[in-house]
Design a protein around this nucleic acid. Sequence first.
DNA 1: AGGGGAACCCGTACGC
DNA 2: TGCGTACGGGTTCCCC
Length: 275
Amino acid sequence: MPELPETETIARDLDGAISGRKIKKVSVRKRDVLRGVSSRSLAKRLQDATIVRSWRRAKLVVIDLDTGDRLVVQPRFTGALLIDDGNFRGAELDYSTLRLELDDGRALHYADVRRLGTVALMNADRFAEYSAKLGIEPLDRSFTAAHLSAVLRATSQPVKKVLMEQRKIAGIGNIYANEALWRARIDPSRLAASISVEEASLLRESIVNVLREAIAARGTSFRDYRDARGERGSFVEKLDVYGRGGLPCRRCGSKLVSTHAIDGRSTTMCVRCQH
DNA sequence: AGGGGAACCCGTACGC
DNA sequence: TGCGTACGGGTTCCCC
């Protein structure tokens, strides 16, 4: 499930691998992943466009084209951007929904088993409008303790839910929300407005550190996530709480508890360490 | 306005 | 064993 670190890994890989390449041919195999653009229009606007760069915003991979259009990919759970340089042999491309043939013989695929992921093509204005609705990037300098504290105070929701709200803070999903709260020793069910400035400062640090460490490990492959080469990220070995319900807390040894009661999503925490 | 709930999709897990 | 069904999961959209 690509969150910020996984999406960042994909975008960096693509940036190094396909910048400067021209798109020679576009094939849409499953049109239901497309948003706001028809197969025909997508093919027309991508044909002969040159890829300028690839980068990340929130949990989106953004591929800038020399035409001014941006290809905006949201992998959700099972989506993957895969570069086929002729080495894929097995089932890697079974779930390809979109194939962009490049001028050097390679092809960029958007593959997605469950197809809850989406692919959109936006012009500059449309992208600006869309991006403006997303919250602050947690790895930006402007994501200060004061900023986080203000976000938390302005809502009546539990803190964990707020961390995952893309309109408030962009890029954090269930895995990293769980991890950051454990690191900051904060109970995920606590009302965000009750978090003190000191706690917000520690939480900000925990968020930034866990995201940076996960990027360094090329992300968390809990189930489906694969990078642009089809490989897994190794941060799953470093997770302290997510997926570790019933196992001992790495800090105090007491048994970690899993619940769905907070936001309908699976939350794992240490009831002894997190208050 | 802000929050709750449905829809999107299909592999996997589970029940009969 | 084989079939049918419920479930999960992030975001968007609709409705209250």
